[in-house]
Amino acid sequence: MNSSNAQSGFALVGDIGGTNARFALWRGEVLESIQVLACADYPRPEDAVRDYLLRVGEPLAGVRNVCLACAGPVGAGDFRFTNNHWVIRRDAFRAELGLSHLLLVNDFSTMAWAASRLSDEHRVQVRPGRVLDDRARLIIGPGTGLGVGSLMPLPGGGWEVLPCEGGHVDLPVTSERDFAIWQLLREKYGHVSAERVLSGSGLENLYRMSCQLDGVEARCASAAEIGERALAGDAYADAVLEHFFLWLARVAGNAVLTVGALGGVFITGGIVPRFLERFQRSGFSSAFAARGKTSGPYLDQVPVWVMTAEHPGLFGAGVALEQALKNES
């Protein structure tokens, strides 16, 4: 692919986790030919890329630019996946596939890149407010873990993504109920991070600890079952889900105060979008800004959206690659 192809936005993008690798073509800011491949079916990531291109009828020679979102901390060297056998050896990968550019980014960072360009059809506003265009945006996503990141606007246009480990901050305690659950979590885990509650396994923790406190029989074995029971009218499961949303409000609000994210908050991940209507009815919006006399007013006008795009990781990988190529031109 020559430079004109790169500027037109044609590239291969991927979003690779421990189990599945999602691939797509990025052309003119649009995702095409999305496919999901099982990592276990391929000895190496190069083999998966070749098979994907064969499946969608795209010759390898036509692809010169690739961006892969990888689950884990991405540095300058080779990348080893934590939960599968793949290793991306940058120089060998680029040479074998004949690439001009290979960009590896953290998988949650692509959520931030996606938030920089989401249209209204791919997001739902759940808290009104005023966007300050020259200030940071916060991205937070309870899913397998709790991802947190921010977007900083650049003076000449574009954005810089600031990845972090904000999911591992201390879990905030603001009520006697919070404290009682925090004590049980500390007995089990020692340090109690926000992720111990705000994730799939965290929702399960919250449910089990709540049942233990209240002397209630635990009827749900998974986060999905807790959510399903809550939506089906189970009052106890619904109360646990509500507590989850309130804790998310506190953690998100704290993160906004830390980075000055007056450009708004974008919620992603596998949990909140699944329960969007219930989330909209929750106490999240009020709890988000229910603070002291200084922090409350600071947060009061910060808007919040839920990202509803079907493949934000792939979309964000395309945006990240596009800006990287633009910066090099």
Rank of each mutant, 00 (worst) to 15 (best):
F108Y: 13
Y42R: 00
L146V: 05
D51S: 04
R94P: 02
E58V: 09
A76L: 10
R55G: 12
A69C: 13
G145L: 12
R137Q: 10
R64S: 06
D134Y: 09
G145C: 15
L104T: 08
V148D: 01
R135A: 12
R80S: 15
R50M: 13
H101D: 11
P43D: 03
R90F: 00
R135F: 12
V87D: 01
N84V: 06
G72W: 01
A61S: 11
R137S: 08
G98M: 09
R130V: 13
P73C: 04
G75K: 13
N83E: 10
A40I: 05
C39G: 04
I140V: 06
A112W: 12
N65L: 02
R90P: 05
H122Y: 09
E58H: 14
V49M: 02
L54N: 14
A48H: 11
G75Q: 13
P45K: 00
E96S: 08
L132F: 07
Q35D: 03
R50S: 05
R127V: 04
W113G: 09
T144F: 09
R89T: 08
R123V: 01
L118E: 08
W86E: 12
C67Q: 01
H122W: 14
L118P: 02
G75L: 02
R130M: 10
D78G: 10
I139W: 04
L132V: 14
P43R: 11
A48S: 07
R50V: 06
H85Q: 09
A76D: 04
D120C: 07
Q35E: 14
Y42N: 15
V148M: 15
F81N: 12
E58K: 11
R137N: 07
C70E: 10
L102Y: 11
V74M: 10
A40E: 04
D41C: 05
